[in-house]
Amino acid sequence: MTSREKILASIASNKPSLVTMPNVPIFEGDGSVERFKNVLESIGGTAVELTTKAECQEAIDKYYHDLVNVASDIVKANVSINLDTNKDILEQVDLAVIQGEIGVAENGTIWVPESNMLNRALPFITQHLVLVLDKHNIVANMQQAYDKLEGVGNYGVFIAGPSKTADIEQSLVIGAHGARSMMVLIY
């Protein structure tokens, strides 16, 4: 008997009789831009509202003019990143500007699928992260978010603010391993 068979047999003999699955509703809630911004700021992110997506470049020039190596398929980039980019180049990225798909007002998180990342490591290895988000794609809570998503693809991440830790005496420190700062440009 393989371990697989052993485990499955043991479950079959030890599990209780079938319990009904509850009906999980899609809860209502406030999915406003305002709430999204407030929550995002409470978790260490920054939100900037734009009139159109075209203003992204202007915003990046304004807020990140001191950063050298920028990777993006939305604004002007000077580091070219793709699936095959090696670690040495990825490590040099100062700023990544990428598209977010769905924002969640309740917790300030944004869905970023692999297809938007240029390289799976980019949103994490970059020193600073900017996500660009269409305000019409902000929903109230996670039920609504997963409902809106059509599957999670090969790889995708909900990102909520910059990387952080409180592992030393519960003191919050922004910028653990991932991005040191995180801005959302909402249009």
């Binding site: 917790n107 300030g108 090969n154 790889y155 990102i159 910059p162 990387s163 952080k164 991932g178």
Partner: peptide, 17 residues
């Protein structure tokens, strides 16, 4: 931890080629 959500909620489905 009292956060509204963890910073990263990562969904792994397929490995990269």
């Amino acid at each position: 931890t009292g956060q509204p959500v963890t910073t990263y909620t990562s969904h792994f489905t397929k490995p990269v080629e």
